[in-house]
Design a protein around this nucleic acid. Sequence first.
DNA 1: CTATTTTTGACTAAATATGTCAAAATATAA
DNA 2: TTATATTTTGACATATTTAGTCAAAAATAG
Lengths: 102, 102
Amino acid sequence: MNSLGDTIRKLREEKELPLRTVAAYLDIDQAILSKIERGYRKPVREQVVKLAKYFKVKENDLLVAWLSDKVVYEIEDEDMALKALQVAEEKVKYITKNKSKK
Amino acid sequence: MNSLGDTIRKLREEKELPLRTVAAYLDIDQAILSKIERGYRKPVREQVVKLAKYFKVKENDLLVAWLSDKVVYEIEDEDMALKALQVAEEKVKYITKNKSKK
DNA sequence: CTATTTTTGACTAAATATGTCAAAATATAA
DNA sequence: TTATATTTTGACATATTTAGTCAAAAATAG
């Protein structure tokens, strides 16, 4: 199950770049990037978008990983987590359906 | 698609209780309860638990509504919302599976 | 009308998220 | 080894978000 952090670390290591370089591009301290890659911090949306551009991968792929990480983080300690996700899916389907028609 | 707010309002109106009374039980200003019922504020977990007790409904049912509302709130503006939820489900399944065995 | 209840919005306080910095730990290479 | 580069850690500061109060305005019920 790869989290966004794992993905970023892999991309960075493939190119043999130090944290410093990528962190500079994101305009944050390398300490934060280190934590993001290991899952101790969540990046903000803008950083995810920048990373997709930087590593030339599909922005949507990273956004899905980022969003799902956030969702999991928010509910993982709850017994009803899975049930809640299923209900959330229905709600999202309902919302998008009624958004298209006016 | 009923949100938690709708549920609470219905329960409260069935018993013909003013906001004041229920809000006092929750130890918050009635203004907040008003906003919670209409979806302009999210209750905290503790309040959801108290409400279940107060109205004598299943705690888990309210928690599922509360959690799913929170999840939807977090992702609804994103194009990848549905996809993210599906990935999140897989991640949660994976986590709970590996939590049971040690 | 008059009472009661509900809603609104400006404001404050508390909590959480995001970031810096510098030192410690780890890995790399001479 | 020992020197150098990289990564990790944790204490701390700052910013943003969330949760709450309060009082007045609006809506509803008698």
